[in-house]
Amino acid sequence: MKKKIAMYWGAGCGGCDVSLLGIHEKLLDVLEKADIVFWPCATDFKYEDLEKMEDGEIDIAFYNGAIRTEENEKIAKLLRKKSKILVAYGSCATEGCVIGLANLYDRDEIFNAVYLDNETTPNEKKIIPQGMEKEGIELPEFLPSLKTLEQVVKVDAAIPGCPPPSPVLEEALNALLEGRTEFGKEVALCDECPRKDTKPDKIEIERFYRWHEKEDDGSCFLAQGMICMGPATRAGCGGECTSAGIPCTGCMGPVPKVENQGIAMLSAIASIIEDMDEEKERAVMESIKDMVGTFYKFSTAKLLPYGRFKDES
């Protein structure tokens, strides 16, 4: 019997939906084994259709995007109820992704930046689109912080990546259709990086370069002094970015044994800074612009579900 699958787009850029199409003709193989019963982005299903389904009627539901609004949260809970297996699809659903960096700010700060203090957004009436209703249509409430899927409902499996690279996705879909919820590689990216053989015996860093500050000589980025998250990032993409001349930023998240990708990479980086005095060491670390954005680009929301800690005193 064909499986019933669903795909939902939460708070995200839409790249995840596109990535499902990105497996090209392989999608036909999937459709041979499964019927799509809900996919707002590609098919004409409404929320009512979803609500009408029996609990657990959907075999596999893919949720992409994070939980940013009441609507996201409501559908996440609904999908959970209606599905046997709920899959966090992509970095936003799994870890919060780039938009999770919003958890460094509170709701008011975000609204001020987006709607009021933003020079390119004329807003003379100073409208903040919250609590509005027109012709029976309500704008959903913006939640105090961004959450990952797992922070809202129980999740059975996760497909990492921003968006999940085709090989990762293919393996995941095959596994899920066979009823397995564990899949993916358990090693870090270096294992499959095309630059792997250029690694020197000893990586020593005297200073860090941002990507545009140094000409790439084609060798291991880290050895060149450019921060590459590869050593702390789960393999699977085949080194798409590093083969295209761009250091890994860590979208695949940490390897299964590691909880906190940023701290894993930071302690590795701190260890390979060349023997120098404290002052120089500090200068080197300060040469890393945007610590959070570098090491926690994808996992801020996972680690800060309630937003930034504020010292009330």
């Binding site: 870090a188 792997k196 690694k199 015996d201 050593p231 260890s271 390979i272």
Partner: peptide, 25 residues
């Protein structure tokens, strides 16, 4: 070893030269 990616961080940090790269990386 099964889960080692060969990133070389340990080889770089070992003050005793005890961590070494094998032919398989």
């Amino acid at each position: 070893e099964e889960h080692c990616s060969g990133c070389g961080i340990c080889i770089s940090v070992c003050p005793y030269g005890a961590m070494q790269r094998q032919p398989n990386g």
